[in-house]
């Protein structure tokens, strides 16, 4: 199987974030890391390759710094990488990101495309699903297990309240992978060395621009929550105060 894994570079989880001047996103000068859900998607792809053979390709869109996630993917065992390299890719919404990916891979024949369930920064959980629609492929989300079978795959999806769904799917397909379903491997030092010699194809904004449209979603304003302290004094007899308190705990704080 030939599997594409979509990976995103996101700000480190515990990095101190500062707003940019326009107040629409954060400043660039933070530390970045691989979006954790995508790390699970990559791990699952590598495990599928170990089981069934094939090839794993990693793809990302973003400025030069985002190549780091591809290097990490290659060091862990991916065979090649595709980098849609331009700072402009950071500003795309899920719809346009999916369109850019679709345009960048139109010459390739993948059996499966994996994405993480969602990104740790925007958290849309849309790119994979939209990509499937654009490609005209079936998709399934929140995947916990993938078994290859004749003519396709059988996947296990996580639903709510402890329920699971098992779905038979044809290939090719797009799957968004649930985090925590496998144990992430570390890149080996040899892997890091070998990654240097693996093919990395760069795609410019100009090559995919004709496929892109206007963003359908944009961030109007990003701000740090204002700290508000409000102390309300309850008055009356002890019985009245108790009654008011219960009322508030039930309806306002909703802990009862």
């Amino acid at each position: 199987m030939k599997i594409l894994v979509c990976m995103k570079q996101v700000p480190q989880k515990d990095a101190p974030l500062k707003l940019n001047e326009t107040g629409t996103w954060i400043r660039e000068d933070v530390s970045y890391e691989v979006n954790e859900p995508d790390a699970y998607a990559l791990e699952e792809a590598l495990r599928q390759k170990e089981k069934h053979g094939g090839e794993v390709v990693v793809i990302t869109a973003g400025p030069a710094r985002s190549q780091q996630v591809l290097r990490e993917g290659l060091a862990k065992g991916a065979d090649s990488a595709i980098h849609l390299e331009d700072p402009g890719f950071v500003g795309l919404d899920a719809f346009n990101t999916a369109k850019a990916f679709a345009a960048a891979i139109k010459e390739e024949n993948f059996d499966l495309i994996f994405t993480g369930l969602q990104s740790d920064d925007y958290g849309y959980a849309q790119t994979g699903v939209v990509l499937a629609e654009i490609m005209g492929w079936p998709h399934a989300t929140i995947i916990m297990q993938i078994d290859k079978q004749d003519g396709g795959i059988k996947v296990k999806r996580e639903l709510e309240a402890g329920f699971f769904q098992h779905v038979d799917m044809p290939l090719p397909a797009v799957l968004t992978i649930q985090s925590g379903i496998n144990k992430l491997r570390y890149a080996t030092l040899i892997g890091i060395k070998q990654a240097k010699n693996k093919p990395l194809r760069k795609v410019t904004m100009d090559e995919v621009r004709s496929s892109l449209g206007d963003n359908m979603q944009k961030i109007e304003k990003l701000y740090i929550p204002q700290k508000t302290k409000k102390t309300e004094m309850l008055t009356g007899s002890p019985a009245e105060i108790a009654k008011q308190l219960v009322e508030k705990l039930k309806n306002e704080v909703r802990v009862l």
């Binding site: 190549q67 780091q68 290097r71 990490e72 060091a75 570390y186 890149a187 030092l189 890091i192 060395k193 990654a195 240097k196």
Partner: peptide
């Protein structure tokens, strides 16, 4: 270099 940072971060994580 990128590789040096990757080696460092990977070991740090471990």
């Amino acid at each position: 270099s990128e590789d040096e940072i990757l080696v460092r971060d990977n070991t740090r994580k471990w």
